[in-house]
Amino acid sequence: MQRILLVEDDKTIALGLSYSLEKEGYEVMLCHDAASALREARSRRFDLAILDVSLPDGSGYDICRAIKAGSDTPVIFLTVYNEESDVVTGLDMGADDYVAKPFRLRELLSRVRTVLRRGGGGEKDEISIGGLTVNTRQAKVTKNGAEVPLTALEYRLLLTFAMNRGQLLTRGQLLEDTWDIGGDFVNDNTLTVYIKRLREKIEDDPQNPVYIRTVRGLGYRMGE
């Protein structure tokens, strides 16, 4: 059974989320403050940590630093903040995802499954696909050695493709796994726009893509 450290000071949210995670088959250690979370993080191993950023006695960032100092445990930040600077701060210290409140439970559970699946698969620090390199530690993408500037959602979309290279991904799968940082869901039309923008940034010829290929009537596949 996979063990999750859940740190959330809002007891209503915490109890509801803890219950839902346990119903999904996870073992949950629930903490409402930074002090107790740090004790748990230092005394036992967890498969995932879900950390509220704003806590009564500290910050989820402090807990993340403590966790990352001693292990590769994946971290998801859970917070009311959704400014780009907050997202960058979390990603820079090694967070695997960043979910803003209010959130829809089904999509948060999907993010949990995705992060655990990546962690369990022995995710590498770098994923190379042709001339593209995705650095998962720094959340940076380079093409032929030059950095490709991506938004948080564009990066998440590309990472989803990279982690499933060669596999067909339906639009439904992409919509489920690509959740807007601000707490809204990406609809079908928005997904089309983001794939177009991503192609414009990573493809030599966006009209004839070699990285993100369309499988007509079914979805997309990452090639090269």
Rank of each mutant, 00 (worst) to 15 (best):
H32D: 14
A34Y: 02
A34W: 00
A35H: 14
S36N: 13
S36T: 15
S36F: 04
A37Y: 01
A37M: 07
R39Q: 14
R39I: 10
E40V: 02
A41Y: 01
R44D: 00
R45A: 09
D47A: 07
L48F: 06
L48E: 03
L48Y: 04
L48V: 06
A49C: 08
A49V: 08
A49P: 07
I50F: 07
L51W: 01
L51I: 03
D52R: 07
D52T: 10
S54V: 15
P56L: 05
P56E: 05
D57M: 06
D57V: 09
S59D: 03
Y61S: 04
D62T: 10
I63L: 10
C64Y: 04
R65V: 10
R65I: 06
I67Y: 08
I67T: 04
I67F: 03
G70W: 01
G70E: 13
S71K: 03
D72V: 07
D72A: 14
T73I: 05
T73H: 07
T73V: 13
T73F: 10
P74N: 03
V75P: 08
L78W: 08
L78M: 12
T79R: 07
V80R: 12
V80P: 01
V80H: 08
N82M: 04
N82S: 15
S85T: 11
S85M: 06
D86K: 13
D86Y: 14
D86P: 00
V87T: 02
V88Q: 09
T89C: 13
T89L: 15
L91G: 07
L91V: 03
D92N: 15
D92C: 05
M93E: 12
D96T: 00
D97T: 01
V99Q: 02
V99K: 03
K101H: 08
F103K: 01
R104D: 12
R104L: 12
L105T: 14
R106H: 12
R106N: 13
L108Y: 13
L109R: 10
L109P: 03
L109F: 06
S110M: 06
S110F: 02
S110V: 11
L116H: 05
R117I: 03
G121T: 03
G121R: 08
G122M: 08
D125G: 15
E126P: 02
I127V: 15
S128Y: 07
I129E: 10
I129L: 14
G130Y: 08
G130R: 10
G131N: 11
G131H: 06
L132I: 15
L132P: 09
V134D: 01
V134T: 03
N135Y: 09
T136S: 10
Q138R: 14
A139G: 07
